[in-house]
Structure formats: C-alpha cells, structure tokens
Design a protein around this nucleic acid. Structure first.
Lengths: 208, 208
DNA sequence: TGTACATCAGTGAACGCGCGTTCACTGATGTAC
DNA sequence: TGTACATCAGTGAACGCGCGTTCACTGATGTAC
C-alpha cells in the first residue's frame, strides 16, 4: 500500500475502537475479544494495536470515555427539547430510545461492561450513570417539577430512573435492531415504568 | 490415584460447575472462561469436561437451571415468612440480600449472563426473572395487597421490582463480599426503591 | 454368593492452531534552519 | 523555498505458549446368570 501511513492522525485508533464495538454488535462479549481479533476486524496488522492501547482493558476504558460523550449529547438534546410538563417523560424516553438505536453498540457495550471483567470499566460506567442521574435531578429541580421532594429523595428517584433505563438495554439485546414492533413495546413499557416511579416519588413524602 | 474413578456419579460435573462459578467469583467474566481453565480450577483433566458438557455454553445453560433452583428456594423462604403487611418489603429484601450473599457467585453469574455472549443463557435468565415476577404478582394478589390494581398493572409493577432487584447485583459486583457497611447501604437503598415503586403502583389507577 | 461381561467416567499423550508480545524495519509527516 | 533530520504510526517475521479437541486406554461399578 502506498498511502498506508500517517494518513490521518489516530485514524487507526478509531478503527480499532469501532472494530471492537462492531464485534460487540455482532453478539460477542467484550471480555472475550482478543487483540488479534480486533485488529483483524479493523483491517490492521496486530502490532498496530500497541501504538494506541496498552491492552484490551485500556481500549475498554477509552470506549467508556466515548460513551460519556454520547450520553452528554443525548442530555443536551433532551434539554433543548422540553415539551409541556405532562409529556416530558414520554418525550425523554423517545429521545433516549432514538439515541439507543443510533448508538446501539455503544449501549450494548455499556450493558456488558456493568457486569464485565474489568473493574476499571465497571467503575467508569457506574460513574457515568451516577453523573447522568445527578444531571437529571438538577434539571428537574431547575424546572420546578419536583419541588416538594427533598434533595435526597429526588436523587433516589433519579437513580431509580437511570437504573430502569439502563436495564432496558438488556431487553434490547434480545431483540433484532430492525424489529420496530418489539422496540416500540420496550419503549412503551419503559415509559410506564418511569411514570410509575414518578407517581411514587410524588406521593413519597406523605407516606413515608 | 487409586480412587479416582466413578466415586460418586457426576461428582466431576458438580466440580466443573462450581469451578466456573469460583472463577466468576474471583472477578472473571464467564464469556472469557476456557475449558482448560475450568478443568484446571476443578482439579480434573481437560478431557473430562466432554463427559458432561458439549461446550462452555452448555455448562452455562446448566448453571442457569441451578440458578432457577436457588431462586425457587428463596421464594419458598420468603413465602413461609410473611410478617405484617407494612414490613413485607423490608423483610423480603432482607431475605433476598441474605440469599444473594450465600449464593454470591450464582447471582454474579446472573448479572453477567443477562448481557452475556450466549443468547441461550441470556434468554434463560430472562425467563427466570419473568417467572419470578409472575410469582411475586401471584403472591401479592393472594395476600390481597394489590386488589385495586388491574392484572396488567400489577404485572408491570412486579416486573419493575424484579428489574430493580436484579440491578442490585451490579452494585454488589463493585463491593467486597465482606464489606458489611456497603452491603447494608445497598440493602437500604433497594428497600427504598421498592417502597417508591409500590407507592407509585398504589396511586397508579387514579392518575393514569 | 460368585463369575463374566458391558458400561462409561476419568486419563494422558498428542495434534494443529491462534494467541499475545517482541523486535528491527520503513517511510510519510512535521520541524529547524 | 529547499534541505536535513527527528519522530513515530504502521509493518511483517518470529517466538513460545496455552488453547480446544481427538484418540485409544483403563479400571471401577452395575448387571445378568
């Protein structure tokens, strides 16, 4: 190949990360991927791997960082798109499901990583989820949608929301990405879960 | 070894399954385990594996079956131990956490398998969780604790409860099994999640 | 009860293969003058 | 603008090793008579 070298800085790095996600998207588990396998999928020689990553764990950690960016993009869109208060849940789940479909392999990686082999990746993903829950609580406070709840109780509810949404991905793992009907069912179910949680949060103070 | 053969029927089978769980308990992911590795851990020659399992996937499926037994034992205990209605949630979470600690590796395997590599194991675990949710709904109906809810809405609430409890395991993965304080925190948090869900379910009909 | 035979769980040697990792290399790009 | 040099991403050969799987074997247990 005449033009194989230094074409774009770290083009190969992206190819390797994408290759790992592609393999996850094909049903493989990240923990069972090997260096040679990933480089093969990326169309790159095995030794090129070490120019960018020290190990598969290292690659996993860098994927978590990118996952963080994807989630921040999702939050930004959700914020710029606030409908009337009653529709907020439904609309948020819409946005969430759309991003989940557009970045399917990222979220599959997330679902795997939560119980994955690397402690560092586990903790990284948990940290992203905590951040997401904290931002959600902030937004609800700012919009005065939960003013009767104490900070602690709002955090509790938001944590539960984020867990419920994260669990949705293990549902999505069992469904073809083109199966619109099933995905629609998951979406509706998730919306109802969140509604139930927020009804619970609304009546929380008075009962406990 | 003089007494190495046919000592107990399928003693080796149990050793192999336990060995796989032990490795999971040490932080390994099931998807990355190999046959030689498991047999080494079990103190058995590699070829012995094939006397009992066709592949690691096969072993995983048989672990799911045993997981089902563990869960049924847990349900039985919860049923035989019904306190006053207000304490039912707390008491159930108690029982659940105790079984989780006694069978830590089983539930770690469950958390991994939900997003694991084998479709069959994934589906098996999902099926166990569905069964668990359905039994929970039945019990609540029988105890007349949810008589104002339609069957569909009660199923919804129970599904959400089971998901929340299942997610608890990914919390436990990040905590040492001896860290009583942290486990206590997880337990209290889970109890509050369930209370919030049931308060939501109680007010569900009137608001939706 | 004793004997002959079938069954089959566990053994140990052997195979070919793909793995992770090392190394010296090459040649395009960026920088100094 | 042109030249000399340093940098470093990607290459390809090579290594030793552990992997999954096969095979013929052995000998304890269960069964038939």
């Amino acid at each position: 190949m005449a033009d194989r070298k230094r074409r774009n800085p770290s083009e190969t790095r992206d190819k390797l990360m994408t290759a790992a996600l592609d393999l996850v998207g094909k049903g493989r588990h990240f923990a069972s991927l090997g260096i040679r396998e990933v480089t093969r999928q990326a169309g790159v020689v095995p030794t090129a791997f070490y120019r960018h990553f020290r190990s598969m764990d290292d690659l996993g950690l860098q994927l978590v960082d990118e996952l963080g960016l994807v989630m921040r993009r999702m939050m930004r869109e959700a914020r710029s798109n606030v409908p009337q208060a009653e529709k907020i849940m439904e609309e948020s789940v819409n946005i969430f499901i759309r991003h989940a479909r557009d970045n399917r392999t990222f979220f599959m990686f997330m679902a795997q990583g939560l119980a994955g082999e690397s402690r560092a990746v586990q903790e990284g993903i948990r940290s992203e989820l905590r951040f997401f829950a904290a931002e959600l609580a902030n937004d609800l406070r700012r919009l005065r949608l939960a003013s009767h709840l104490s900070d602690g109780d709002l955090d509790l509810a938001c944590d539960l929301v984020v867990r419920t949404v994260a669990f949705t991905f293990t549902d999505m793992l069992g469904v073809s990405p083109d199966d619109d009907y099933q995905i629609d069912q998951i979406q509706k179910r998730t919306t109802r879960f969140l509604q139930m949680i927020f009804i619970g949060a609304n009546h929380w103070q008075s009962e406990s």
